[in-house]
Simulated scan of single mutants.
Amino acid sequence: MSEDRSTDNAAVPATGDAADAPETIAVTETETPGRRRLTTLLIIAAVLFGLDLLTKCLAVAYIDPDDPVPIIGDFARLDLVRNPGAAFSMATGMTWLLTLIAAAVVVGVIRIGRTLRSLWWAIGLGMVLGGAMGNLVDRIFRSPGPLQGHVVDFVAIGWWPVFNVADSAIVCGAILLVALTIFGFEPDGTRSGRKHTEETA
């Protein structure tokens, strides 16, 4: 009798929560990489934002605008400049518009980051986000007033316009994202060339 009961129990299909377990696990595994990439993006952005804010505070406190600090002669120096324009002193007469663009970039990057599966895209977008936040804070809180604030720049190298950590982060992040796009690396972690090959095989 005990053998018959064990046989009957083995034949009964799983129902309820047990039957749904594989599907639940699959959903969890699908969502986890996206959350990890968003976390990576936000950590990179926070580190760069903090570094940008710290270096700007030090520059304002210790660099005289009329007395640049030489690092490598006249080639590399610390030169405090208040920049009303975009990165590398471009579009100096459109401060309010640049402020709105920076705010839109911050919102857009965060929304895109929620769907990411690619580590490299997370790094690139994190750099752009950190830089955009750094300069956005200057435009909101520094003089001459909200949405008109001048960005603190202090790094001068050769003939290149004076810049800061945020500018460097934005440019390097943008270059990385362009390179990823050119070589076919998608935000979802796939590669467009491989995807096309699999579809035609």
Rank of each mutant, 00 (worst) to 15 (best):
A166C: 08
D167L: 10
P144D: 01
R139I: 00
H150C: 12
V152W: 01
G158F: 04
V162M: 07
F141E: 11
V152N: 03
I157C: 09
V162I: 13
A169T: 07
A169C: 07
D138V: 04
V162N: 07
R139G: 00
A166W: 00
G149H: 08
W160H: 08
N164G: 05
G158K: 05
D153L: 12
V152G: 03
I140C: 10
A166S: 05
G158D: 04
F154Q: 07
P161I: 07
V171P: 04
L147Y: 02
F141D: 09
D153F: 14
D153S: 11
P146K: 06
F141C: 14
I170N: 11
P146G: 11
Q148H: 14
P146H: 12
W160I: 05
I170P: 13
H150L: 13
W160K: 09
I170Y: 07
A156Q: 10
V151C: 04
V162P: 15
L147H: 06
S168V: 02
N164H: 03
I170W: 11
P146W: 13
F154G: 01
D138M: 05
A156P: 08
I140D: 12
L147S: 13
I140M: 14
P161T: 04
G145N: 06
V151D: 01
A169P: 15
I170S: 12
P146F: 11
H150R: 14
R139T: 00
G145M: 06
F154D: 03
G158I: 03
S143V: 14
